[in-house]
Design a protein around this nucleic acid. Structure first.
Length: 487
DNA sequence: CCTTACGCGATCAATCATCC
DNA sequence: GGATGATTGATCGCGTAAGG
C-alpha cells in the first residue's frame, strides 16, 4: 500500500484514506478562503461534518449583532448523536418560527411574505449556507486537483497491481444506497452518518464486479481526456463514445456516481454534465457561465453551469417550485409570476435533476427569499418535495449543495383531500403503498411530525389527488399563502 | 449458512417520434 | 388527432452470486 504523500509526483492521498485535511494543507484552501470570519465559521462546521468532508465550508456571512455562532460546538469527537439532533430540531423550530405564524385574520400579502422573508434570513444566519471551495478555485487549481486525484488513484491501483496478492485491486467508496448510512440535519438536510460508515469495494478479482471495475477505470480515463482537451461531455455522449463497453446508460450513471462519491468532487467539476431538464420564469436577470445575459420573463431552461452564474438580480418576493411541467405551463399562461406578486417559478419536470436543485439552492442562498412548493398529493409528490427539501440518498455523499430545508409545502395535502370531488381522486396503488412505507422510514420524516402526519392520513384513507384536480392553480397558491396553510 | 455487494427491473414524469 | 413506444434522468426494491 502506497503511503499517502510518499509519491515523488506530489500526488494527493487517496480519497478513502485521510484525505481532506492533508489535501487542504497541500493546496492551501483554508488560507485562500480569506477573512477571519470564514476561519472561525469553518471551525464550527466540524461539529456536524465528517472530518473527511472538511472541504465544504460556510460562506463568510454578514455578522448580525446578537447572533451566536451557527452551531454550538461542544462535542470534540466530530460525531453527531441523537440528542444533538433533538437540540438542533428545537433550535430550528425556534428559528423557523413554525409555531408562530402571522397572527391576524386579515394578514395581507406583504405581512406574510415579510414574515417568511425574516424567517429565511434568520435561518440562513443560523445555518449559513455552505459554499463549495471547488466553486472558487481558479481553472488551473481545479485542473491540478482533479487530475492529481484521479492520477493518484489510478497510480495506486497500478502500484497495487505490481505487488499482486499483497493488496487486491479495488475502488472503495461509501455505500450511498443505504439509509442507515445517512442522517438528517435540520439546517442542512441529509448528511453522511459518521457512526455508520459502511464502504463498498468494487474489486477486480470478483467475477461479478470486474466489469464495473473496468468501467470505472474507463470513466476515470475519459475524465482525464476531457481535462486534456479542455472540454465537457454529457453522460449521454460519454455512453455513445464507449457504447460497446458501457452497454447501457445506467452503467455510465453508476460510474459517475461512484467517482463523485469516491473522490468527493462535484459532478460538474468532473466535466460530466447532464442535459438540463428544468425550467424557470419570473422577474430575474443574470449572466450565465458564457457571460450571456439571461432574462426569465418567460419559460427558460435552467443553465447547466450554475456556478458560472453572475450579476444575479431579481425583485421576486418568493420562489414557487412546482412538480410538473403541465402546472408550470398553466401558471405561465396565467402570467402568475407578475400578476399577483413578483415571484420566480421553477419546475424540475418530475423528479428534479441536479441542475434544477443546484439552481434553486443558488437562488435561495443569493436572494434570501422564501421557497414554496406545490406538489401532487400522492407519495411520489411527497418524495419529490423531500428531494428538494432534504436532499437525496446518493447525493448526500457527493459534494453538491442542494437541500433547501426551510422550503414550505403548500399542497396538495392529503388532509385536504376531502375538498376535492371523488372523480378527481385515485386510489393508492400497490406501488404507492410501498412508497409510503419507504417514506415513513426516512430520517427526515421522523424529524417532521407534520409531514409524517400527512403521510399517515394518506395511508389511512387510501386516496391520492393530483394538482390537476385544482381549477385554478394560481388562485390555489394565493389561497394557501394568504391562509398561511403550509407544512 | 448468513451477510454483503451487485445487477437488474420497476417506477415516475415528461417529451418526441411514429403509427393508425 | 389520439394512442403507443422509445428516450432521458432519478430513485428504490428484490433476487442472486460470491465470500467469510
Amino acid at each position: 500500500m502506497a503511503a499517502p504523500g510518499s509519491s515523488p509526483f506530489h500526488i494527493p492521498s487517496s480519497p478513502h484514506s485521510d484525505s481532506g485535511a492533508s489535501l487542504d494543507r497541500i493546496l492551501g484552501v483554508d488560507s485562500e478562503c480569506g477573512d477571519d470570519d470564514s476561519v472561525q465559521l469553518s471551525d464550527s462546521i466540524e461539529t456536524f461534518l465528517d472530518a473527511s468532508e472538511i472541504e465544504v465550508k460556510f460562506a463568510p456571512s454578514e455578522h448580525i449583532p446578537g447572533t451566536s455562532s451557527p452551531i454550538h460546538s461542544s462535542n470534540k469527537d466530530h460525531s453527531f448523536n441523537d440528542s444533538q439532533v433533538e437540540i438542533e430540531l428545537a433550535l430550528t423550530d425556534h428559528v423557523l418560527g413554525t409555531s408562530s405564524p402571522v397572527h391576524s385574520s386579515e394578514a395581507s400579502w406583504p405581512d406574510i411574505l415579510d414574515a417568511l422573508k425574516v424567517q429565511t434570513v434568520h435561518f440562513q444566519t443560523h445555518f449559513p449556507p455552505m459554499v463549495c471551495p471547488w466553486t472558487f478555485m481558479s481553472h488551473e487549481e481545479r485542473y491540478q486537483r482533479v487530475v492529481g486525484q484521479i492520477e493518484g488513484l489510478l497510480l495506486s491501483q497500478i502500484q497495487n497491481g505490481m505487488v499482486q496478492g499483497d493488496a487486491p485491486l479495488g475502488f472503495t467508496y461509501p455505500d450511498y444506497s443505504d439509509w442507515s448510512q445517512v442522517q438528517y440535519h435540520p439546517g442542512y438536510g441529509l448528511r453522511p452518518n459518521l457512526s455508520a460508515s459502511r464502504m463498498i469495494t468494487t474489486r477486480l478479482e470478483n467475477r461479478g464486479s470486474a466489469t464495473k471495475y473496468s468501467l470505472i477505470v474507463l470513466t476515470l480515463w475519459s475524465i482525464l481526456e476531457l481535462f486534456d482537451q479542455d472540454s465537457f461531455v454529457t453522460k449521454r455522449e460519454l455512453y455513445y463514445q464507449h457504447i460497446n463497453h458501457y452497454r447501457s446508460q445506467v452503467a455510465v450513471d453508476e460510474c459517475v456516481k461512484v467517482i463523485a462519491c469516491m473522490l468527493r468532487i462535484p459532478r460538474l467539476h468532473l466535466r460530466i454534465l447532464s442535459t438540463s431538464k428544468g425550467l424557470f420564469m419570473g422577474n430575474i436577470v443574470f449572466h450565465n457561465a458564457q457571460g450571456i445575459q439571461v432574462i426569465g420573463s418567460h419559460a427558460t431552461p435552467i443553465p447547466q453551469d450554475i456556478t458560472g452564474i453572475s450579476q444575479l438580480a431579481s425583485d421576486a418576493k418568493f420562489i414557487l417550485v412546482v412538480e410538473k411541467d403541465a402546472v408550470f405551463q398553466r401558471l405561465a399562461d396565467d402570467n402568475f409570476a407578475v400578476i399577483y406578486q413578483p415571484c420566480l417559478v421553477i419546475t424540475g419536470k418530475g423528479v428534479p435533476d441536479l441542475n434544477t436543485r443546484q439552481f434553486l439552492y443558488h437562488l435561495w442562498t443569493h436572494l434570501k427569499i422564501p421557497v414554496l412548493a406545490l406538489m401532487d398529493g400522492d407519495p411520489f409528490g411527497l418524495e419529490i418535495l423531500c428531494t428538494y427539501r432534504f436532499g437525496s440518498l446518493p447525493m448526500t455523499w457527493s459534494q453538491e449543495l442542494l437541500p433547501v430545508p426551510i422550503m414550505k409545502w403548500i399542497g396538495i395535502f392529503p388532509s385536504d383531500i376531502h375538498q376535492f370531488s371523488r372523480e378527481h381522486l385515485k386510489p393508492l396503488s400497490k406501488v404507492d403503498c410501498a412508497k409510503i412505507r419507504s417514506l415513513l422510514q426516512r430520517p427526515y420524516v421522523e424529524a417532521h411530525p407534520e409531514l409524517k402526519q400527512e403521510i399517515l392520513i394518506m395511508k389511512d384513507h387510501g386516496w391520492k389527488a393530483e394538482i390537476e384536480a385544482v381549477d385554478s392553480v394560481g388562485d390555489f397558491v394565493i389561497r394557501q399563502i394568504l391562509s398561511q396553510h403550509w407544512r
